[in-house]
């Protein structure tokens, strides 16, 4: 079975993919759907959802359109998810590759650093980092990236360690290719599959992490995110449920979609595992 057909065989993964594409569409089309700022106070506060056509999902405590916030939030939340994952990959992949490729004391030292970051409770570290750097989209992305790279490094190291002994890598070493070139051209491309699987899940965790930071008052005050909306509406769960419910659903669907796609990729990219299904 090829990759595509294996992926398509997993119904959950397909549902996830459709959801994800829809979300990305929202993110891209957001400014066109809702050209004005989502922070604008446009109507009576606490307008219930599905009552007027103009404000389909109701308005919040200050009379801001929940739907506009949701759509603009899609962009920022997904952006934070992807960029912070990218940051984590930029740290984790090279560290893991170096550790796995060279082994010895380099491996030892790099793995100590990884262990170091895995020992500190990651959410606590993220909180401290954002507090130190002051809340802004940059500090949030950086903090999430810094606390999420260790698993990447471990994964890459493991993969590289096993790839290193393969014939084609040994051959490359024998013909005298430079170490960097071997790592980039022979080793890393073969680790892409598991990295992609892991990254899809990391995007999901990053979105959740941002919402938690936002809840603790450590969000970027100038950007509308889902986490901000859920946090700001939480005291009105009893009588204005829609303010935090819709962004909550958005987070749920996104995380779900990314997980399903990740699961599907995992099964599709690891044919070894699907043998268990005979």
């Amino acid at each position: 079975m090829g990759f595509m057909s294996r992926f398509a065989a997993n119904k959950g993964a397909l549902v996830g993919l459709v959801l994800l594409i829809a979300l990305l569409a929202f993110a891209v089309l957001g400014p066109w759907l809702y050209p004005t700022s989502p922070w604008r106070m446009v109507a009576r506060p606490f307008t219930a959802p599905f009552v007027t056509d103009r404000f389909l999902l109701g308005t919040d405590t200050l009379g801001r359109d929940v739907a506009a916030g949701l759509v603009h939030g899609t962009r920022i939340s997904i952006l934070i998810g992807f960029v912070s994952t990218l940051v984590a990959l930029l740290i984790g992949v090279p560290l893991g590759a170096l550790a796995g490729y060279f082994g010895g004391w380099i491996d030892d030292a790099l793995m100590r650093i990884t262990e170091f970051f895995q020992t500190i409770p990651s959410f606590a570290l993220a909180i401290v980092l954002v507090a130190v750097l002051q809340p802004s989209i940059y500090s949030i992305v950086l903090a999430i990236g810094i606390v999420s790279w260790p698993p990447v490094a471990r994964l890459v190291r493991g993969e590289v360690l096993s790839l290193r002994t393969r014939e084609y890598v040994q051959a490359a070493i024998t013909v005298g290719q430079s170490t960097l070139r071997i790592i980039f051209s022979q080793v890393l491309p073969n680790t892409v599959a598991p990295i992609i699987v892991m990254a899809s899940l990391m995007v999901a965790s990053a979105i959740l992490l941002e919402s938690s930071l936002s809840f603790l008052g450590l969000g970027d005050p100038n950007l509308m995110t889902w986490g901000y909306m859920v946090g700001a509406g939480r005291t009105r769960l009893m009588d204005a449920w829609w303010i935090s419910f819709f962004p909550g659903v958005a987070i749920f669907l996104t995380v779900l979609a990314l997980n399903l796609v990740g699961e599907g990729l995992n099964d599709a990219l690891n044919p070894r595992l699907s043998r268990g299904r005979e």
Partner: peptide, 24 residues
């Protein structure tokens, strides 16, 4: 926080650019 957000909109309406900075 809500108050700062509302004032930011008031300022935007008259052409004043304001950016909110949060801290603890």
């Amino acid at each position: 926080t809500r108050w700062a957000e509302a004032i930011k909109q008031n300022f935007a309406d008259v052409g004043i650019n304001m950016e909110i900075v949060t801290t603890d």
